[in-house]
Simulated scan of single mutants.
Amino acid sequence: MSSIILASASPRRAELLEQIGVAFTVQPAHIDETPGTSEMPVDYVERLAREKALAVAISFPDKLILGSDTSVVLDNVILGKPSDAYEAGTMLAELSAKTHRVMTAIALVQGGRCESRLVTTEVTFRKLLEPEIAAYVASGEPMDKAGSYGIQGLGGIFVKEIKGSYSAVVGLPLQETAALLADAGCPVWKHWPSSRESQS
């Protein structure tokens, strides 16, 4: 399993891979993440996941490369990472008392072949108060998060309901990631530790 490379600098994705027992190294991808003209969010997210994995695979042709991308989408508009505190507060106010979609794509490159999966989860926020938005922005947590919030952190108190994959909202859909690795001949469960004592 050490032949796996995560093409992402996200500590959250790394933690999720560790959670399911995957041994890996990290090699962040550096690509242009600008959406194409009239590009739909669903196409954008999957394209970025594939491009990240393929970009790293050029330097590591014998490795399994995992790339992923997550976007928060409200009314078919992508809410990316905020550029400053004002934008973070504005995004959170827009998400207040509404249901948005979190789209996360995972791609796996093996021997020049790229397979990908897209997971869409519906997340509903309760009504957010201005003072708590201000306090959350001041915490700094929103600044490196798509949509200006982290469901696994302080922002978790804003979530009223979730329909779909929690891990995908955090940044990596575990079921789909494990399935891609299994299809590539690396089922994660074969590397889980065992607490059973030898019977011999």
Rank of each mutant, 00 (worst) to 15 (best):
M1N: 08
S3A: 12
S3T: 13
S3K: 12
L6A: 01
A7P: 06
A7C: 09
A7T: 10
S8Y: 01
A14Y: 00
E18C: 03
V22Q: 07
A23K: 08
F24T: 05
V26I: 15
Q27E: 14
A29S: 15
H30Y: 03
H30R: 15
I31K: 05
G36C: 08
T37L: 15
S38L: 13
D43R: 09
Y44L: 14
E46I: 13
A57H: 15
S59G: 14
S59H: 12
S59W: 00
F60D: 02
P61R: 10
D62R: 06
L66V: 08
G67W: 07
S68Q: 03
D69P: 10
S71L: 02
S71N: 13
V72D: 02
L79C: 11
L79Q: 12
G80W: 05
K81C: 09
P82A: 14
S83H: 13
A85E: 14
Y86F: 10
G89A: 07
T90S: 13
L92M: 09
A93V: 04
L95V: 07
K98A: 05
H100C: 06
V102G: 01
M103W: 09
A105L: 07
L108S: 12
V109A: 12
Q110P: 02
G111V: 09
G111E: 10
G112H: 04
G112F: 01
C114S: 09
E115L: 13
L118F: 09
L118N: 06
V119S: 02
T120P: 00
E122W: 03
V123G: 10
R126K: 08
K127Y: 10
K127T: 15
V137S: 03
S139F: 01
G140V: 07
D144T: 03
G150C: 02
L154T: 11
G155D: 12
V159A: 12
V159R: 11
K160Q: 15
E161N: 13
A168Q: 08
V169T: 10
G171V: 08
A178D: 09
A182S: 14
D183S: 14
V188L: 13
W189Y: 15
S194N: 11
S194W: 00
E197I: 08
S198D: 12
